[in-house]
């Protein structure tokens, strides 16, 4: 059974996929106020993710939650690059780099630049 990762799209992220075929795959939540892309993760690959990040878990909906920010950011980066949701292999190729970045997340997460 596959699992899923939800990638939230704020305006900045949305602008990077606007006008591509991905736009049709957006799921709308909260009356359309929140946009997300759902990435399907085959079971053997979700096991790899769970193994890499000890806090990660599968929730009751089958979504992989409590994964590091670095992982989610990498998922979106690959989506934006490939203009496709079929990116989990590309993300897993970067796993070592993501694990290293995630280690620093207990100490520091860069704040967003907002006014």
């Amino acid at each position: 059974m596959p699992h899923y990762i939800s990638v939230i799209l704020d305006d900045e992220r949305y602008s990077k996929i606007k006008g591509t075929p991905l736009e049709e795959k957006i799921t709308y939540l909260f009356g359309g106020a929140l946009r997300s892309l759902i990435v399907e993760v085959p079971e053997e690959k979700s096991e790899k993710i769970l193994k890499a990040f000890d806090k990660a878990r599968i929730d009751s909906r089958g979504y992989i939650e409590d994964i590091p920010v670095a992982f989610r950011r990498a998922v979106f980066e690959e989506i934006a690059k490939a203009k496709s949701l079929d990116v989990i292999d590309k993300v897993l190729e970067r796993l070592d780099e993501i694990v290293e970045a995630a280690k620093k997340e207990d100490e520091y997460i860069p704040p967003p630049e907002i006014e």
Binding site: D11, A33, L34, R72, R73, P110, I114
Partner: peptide
Amino acid sequence: GSFLRGMVAEGVFPPRVV
């Protein structure tokens, strides 16, 4: 709460309905 914390940690500006 965990969904929101995830959104915040990612630096995603939450919609005002949330």
